[in-house]
Design a protein around this nucleic acid. Sequence first.
DNA 1: AGAGTATAGGCGAAAGAAAAGCGAACGTTC
DNA 2: GAACGTTCGCTTTTCTTTCGCCTATACTCT
Lengths: 204, 204
Amino acid sequence: MNPTPRQKQILDFVTRSIDRRGFAPSIQEICDHFDLSSTATVHKHLKNLAARGLLNRESHRSRALEVPSAHAPEPVEIPLLGRVAAGVPIEAISNPDTISIPADWLGRGERFALRVRGDSMIDAHIEDGDVVVVERRETARDGDTVIALVDDAEATLKIFRSQADGRVRLEPRNESLKPMVFEAGRVRIQGAVVGVLRRYDRRS
Amino acid sequence: MNPTPRQKQILDFVTRSIDRRGFAPSIQEICDHFDLSSTATVHKHLKNLAARGLLNRESHRSRALEVPSAHAPEPVEIPLLGRVAAGVPIEAISNPDTISIPADWLGRGERFALRVRGDSMIDAHIEDGDVVVVERRETARDGDTVIALVDDAEATLKIFRSQADGRVRLEPRNESLKPMVFEAGRVRIQGAVVGVLRRYDRRS
DNA sequence: AGAGTATAGGCGAAAGAAAAGCGAACGTTC
DNA sequence: GAACGTTCGCTTTTCTTTCGCCTATACTCT
């Protein structure tokens, strides 16, 4: 059985909390996180989640929450789909390499990685050679760092801005490069950057 | 079943202790480490951990603790030893949190992580809030990005330069900050930065 | 259409259980 | 006998559970 939106929020929070810290949150902590004022509310949510089989609990034990492993065999590897700004749509890569990422960087959505080419985001402190971890999405919120495809021709790493006139502005973060504005139809979002990995010890 | 926060702290301590020394700590040692005054408290924790299946014990045998490895399949985790530039020597942190890193970032040496505070390395594109992965070392090569302890008082993130006069120069990467030069004896290298992790999706 | 009813989401307060701690005494093992 | 581990009663703190009451929304039965 599927959770309500609210229940999903809470379930996600519990899940994240467990793999981030190694233990489940207390009811009070969940309360605080969602800005609720009564523990009774959270308790009810947990009860409902358990009734739907989305959560296992042990009565009267503190922090005794377990998320039944829907996401059990977590691969800590994701595909490395080439280089951004290399002029190829993401889907087009057929035999991707893979790259390891921190286990807790896996989110709910599909994630992939791209190696950054060039300095177009240098002022956001993303360097040439860095790897960006991207969550596949087709929409973006204002200010997101995205992989965008313009006219299905070139994947680029930019800041996403939706303008008042309905068009889309893609901003680099480099003084010497200018933002570009496109009709919304010409821009396809491929994903949003959720993290950056940089290694110093493998640079020959 | 998940541990409580306290139980996880103790479990982590036991695990690290076994890793480092080859044998488990005594109850008294755990007591001392957590500044507790009664061994009964620790004993209770160990009992509870065993009840949750997170620890195997042999009754009445000293230091007979075992952490079931089933629970740790491939957790590529390293200790997160606080914040650099926070004025505390690395060794002094007693109850480190841990953080996940990519599986292939483990090298031959011991590695740990630090959260970066401040913008002293901003021109090297290391931002406030980033996590640096550090390989523990006591020496550095010219140009390495290092965690250095000056007068055993403050851990800082700098570029390491050894000067012709035998002294050591620690260079920030921030226009508004100046390099500092010290007698070699005053500077203790704690490790060299091997990578940077940055997340955008967990900044709530 | 309106009445009834079920479910989700929420509040606050109070009750009660578990976790975490203490000190001291008691057992085991080597 | 020394060093450890174990048990007991007791306190405080943290967490969970329950109760009554409220508001919505959606679904069903006249």
